[in-house]
Amino acid sequence: MQQTAKRQPQAITISNGGLTATLMQLGAMLCDLRLEGCDHSLVLGWRDPAEYLRKDEYLGPIVGRCANRISSGAYHLNGETFHLNRNFRDRHCLHGGQDGASTQLWKVEHCSATSVTFTLHLPDGHMGFGGDLFVSARYSVENPAVLRLEIEAHSDSATVCNFAPHWYFNLNGGGDITGHKLEIAANRYLPVDDDLIPSGNPTPVQGTEFDFRTPRMVGDFPFDHNFCISDQRTPEKPVAVLESPLSGVRMALSSTEPGLQVYSGTHLNHLERETLSGEPYVPYSGLALEPQGWPDAPNNPSYPSVILRAGERYLHISRLSFNRSAHHNG
C-alpha cells in the first residue's frame, strides 16, 4: 500500500499571465493547459491522475531517451550493436522502450509559482541503450500566454538522445481536430512503410497531403509522419501554427528541433475513461505535434544526428505561444 502511495501522481500547477499549466512527476507530464477566457483544457488528459499509471497511451509526457521509432530495435555506435526493447509491434523500439522516460517518476528539482524543473537518470543499459544519461526538463509559463519547455541532458559516454513532448492538442476542448487549421514550416517530409519506419529520403511536400506551408484544415488523413523542419538542431525557430476557427484559439509552436512528428490520433479509443473534456477520446480527438529529431536517425547517417557524446550538452527548447480572437466566448 505504501509503495502505491509513493507512485500516486501529484499535480503541480504553474501560472503566469493568461496561462496555467498542470504538470506531474510521472513522465514529466503536461496534463492540463488552460488559457484565460476559455472554459476548457487545450490538451488531452485524464480527469483522475491515477489513470496516468496505465501505460497504454502517451497523453502528455516527455518521451525518450529516443523519441519515435528505431527500426528493428537496434542501432550501431562506436563499433558496438545495441539491442533495444521492442515495444512497437514486437519488432521496433518506440519512444525509448516500454519503460522509457514517459513511465518514470521524475524528481522535482525546483518549483516556483511560474516554473518547475524535473530531473531523471537513465542508467547505462536501460531499455538496451548505452550510456548513463542525466536529463532535466524545465517548464515555465511566461507572460502573456507562453509555455516554454527546456530539456537538457548529458552523458558519461556516447549515447542516443532525442527527447520530445508528446502533447495532444484540441483547441476546442472537445469534438475532433479535423477542422483545426494547421501551418508547418517544412517543405519536405519522411515517407514511411507499413510499420511507420521511414522508408527513404525526405520527399517534397508539394502536391501531397503533407503540404501545410500555407494554413489549411487538418482533415481526416491519418498523419503519423515526420516533417523535416531543418537538417540539424538550430536556434529556436517558428515550426507550426495551429488554430481553431471555432474557439478562436491560436497556438504558435517554435523549437530548436529538426523534425516535427505530426500524429492525428487515429488510434485514440477510450470510451469508458474519464477525460478532461468529459467526452470519450476517439480517433481524431487530439492532434499530437512533437518537436524532435527525425525518426530512426541512429540507423540513417544522412539524417540529423541524435548522438550525444561525452562532454556535450543536449539542449531542446520548445515554446507554445497562445492568443485568442476577441469575438469568441467560452
Rank of each mutant, 00 (worst) to 15 (best):
D220T: 08
E183Q: 12
G248P: 11
D231R: 12
L182C: 10
S230G: 13
F227V: 13
N187Y: 09
S244H: 06
R233P: 00
L196N: 07
G207I: 02
V205M: 01
M217P: 00
A185Q: 15
F223M: 06
N170A: 08
E236R: 10
P235H: 14
R233H: 03
M251V: 04
C228Q: 01
P222H: 13
P215V: 10
V239P: 10
L196P: 04
P245G: 15
S244Y: 08
S247I: 05
T208A: 12
L242W: 01
K181S: 04
D194E: 14
R233Y: 05
Y168E: 07
R250A: 13
W167I: 05
Q232V: 06
T203Y: 02
L196A: 09
P204K: 04
N172H: 10
I177N: 02
V205T: 15
V192A: 15
E209A: 08
T208Y: 14
D193N: 13
G207P: 00
S230P: 08
F221H: 11
L190I: 02
V249L: 02
R188Y: 01
R213T: 09
V239W: 09
A186D: 04
P245R: 06
V239K: 10
F221N: 07
F223P: 01
R250S: 05
I229N: 01
L171Y: 03
D193G: 04
D224H: 12
N226H: 09
K237H: 15
I229G: 04
A240G: 03
I229K: 07
P245T: 04
T208D: 13
V192P: 14
A185P: 11
S244A: 12
N201D: 08
S230H: 13
L182F: 05
N187T: 15
S244T: 07
D176L: 05
P222L: 10
N226D: 06
